[in-house]
Design a protein around this nucleic acid. Structure first.
Lengths: 240, 240
DNA sequence: CAAGGCATTTGAGCCGGATCAAGGTGAATA
DNA sequence: TATTCACCTTGATCCGGCTCAAATGCCTTG
């Protein structure tokens, strides 16, 4: 398997960012049990329902969680970026398939050691809990999108979500907050699986936005948002 | 407002079922701070983003969580049955609209008192956390349904989900495990909002299943599953 | 630079589910 | 019993997004 195992000895700063809100000595305790892995794109991290023997923080890169029907139809049910957790505390297995989308830098912990730390460090489980509530909120927002939005609204919502996410982890290419520019981490096929559409429909919607001068493309992955106002209007807002 | 407030003095048994896995004295502490409310169908429990000043367990009945777009398109993003929790621990507000679907018997707790108890009772927060992980799992299963299943598969999945849920809370009408019979808690319009379909499509799919002798209807709300095997086949299974 | 291979775009036609429009049904009220 | 009203069913038509097919663009390798 093409993955490197590195001892994690001096990445406190990184852990600080990743785990957030932990005291300095607690971060040190996490670092002590951490290993680092560098994974290429398309690497399976977790097969459906397989036992997960470790936890991880994403240090950089993007991971997708997918579910698949017997005949192959697939839906992405979660996208994890830098600083997100992978794995389910105190659960043996996970009903998803997890796979790297880009190069991914993981900081992993042995499951048993991690769970012991969670119990020992006051407020750590509370923090993981709040994290999970956030994931639940975004899953439900996604349900609204999947069930009720048109193709154009879906793609607009997706672009804005990625823009916001890339911004928050400092991966945007340009600096102008009114005209964000960034690399799409997903292929058209992955965007389709994310939005419950086909590749062709995604492509057509993106082309139309290009014609309408709402966005601009360089190559196929680098997107500039030219008109934030119209892009947000295309998304269709949630009621207050 | 047509709701009754009752002092909750001797409902330990019910709490035991509802909160699960709590010791007898801990259940007693919960009972001490609980009040009961009886709500009719169609009662709003929580407006979008409004502050929630209490927690609750559902003792009986069904509650729906919805999200709505500016133009009125609506999606049900959660269905809560007896023994489910309502409210978000340690969060001021909730980005959903919550509303009773049937007559609902709630057992409510003042937010502050409840959160104090959660901190004091060892393992209580852990339990709530595990609960939330389960909700996240079912939200993601629902994303697969919304994004990738056909109308027929959606309706079949829905009927099976309700059958399972009614069974587990002891609300089924018949006893034959091979031929469950139960009352649908949702109207056609609500089923449509649940599945990301229109009323008409839901109605047509149900009619077709009736013609195909997969189910039988008495009136409009009471359903018997005649052929469990074919209903499960119609659902399209998830890949292992 | 050419050749190959994959991802993306674009086009044509079709179909599943939405929309629009009547009817039907059943419980509540008079 | 008749009336009403909300909910549900059924039919006819339409259209957004899917399917199938081909062309184009882009990166990799020789």
């Amino acid at each position: 398997m093409a993955e490197h195992l590195l001892r994690c000895d001096s990445c406190s700063v990184r852990h600080r960012a990743v785990c957030g809100a932990l005291a300095r000595d607690e971060v040190a305790r996490l670092s002590a049990i951490a290993h680092h892995k560098l994974l290429p794109p398309g690497q399976v991290i977790l097969h459906d329902n397989a036992e997960m023997h470790y936890f991880a923080n994403i240090v950089s890169g993007v991971v997708k969680l997918t579910k698949t029907l017997a005949d192959g139809r697939q839906q992405i049910v979660g996208l994890q970026f830098a600083s997100d957790f992978l794995g389910r505390p105190f659960r043996a297995n996970s009903p998803y398939h997890a796979e790297t989308v880009t190069d991914v830098h993981l900081c992993t912990y042995d499951k048993g050691q991690f769970e012991r730390l969670v119990k020992e460090i006051d407020g750590f489980e509370h923090r993981l809990f709040q994290n999970t509530l956030d994931e639940l909120d975004s899953a439900r927002e996604w349900m609204l999108l999947l069930g009720r939005k048109s193709a154009g609204e879906k793609v607009a919502s997706f672009l804005l979500m990625v823009a916001r996410r890339m911004e928050s982890i400092g991966c945007k290419v340009s600096d102008d907050p009114e005209r964000p520019r960034f690399n799409l981490p997903l292929s058209r096929a992955e965007i389709a699986d994310f939005l419950g559409l086909t590749i062709e429909t995604v492509s057509r919607q993106i082309s139309r936005m290009k014609v309408d001068k709402i966005i601009a493309l360089e190559g196929t992955r680098t997107i500039s948002i030219l008109d934030m106002r119209r892009l947000m209007a295309a998304m269709e807002q949630e009621r207050d």
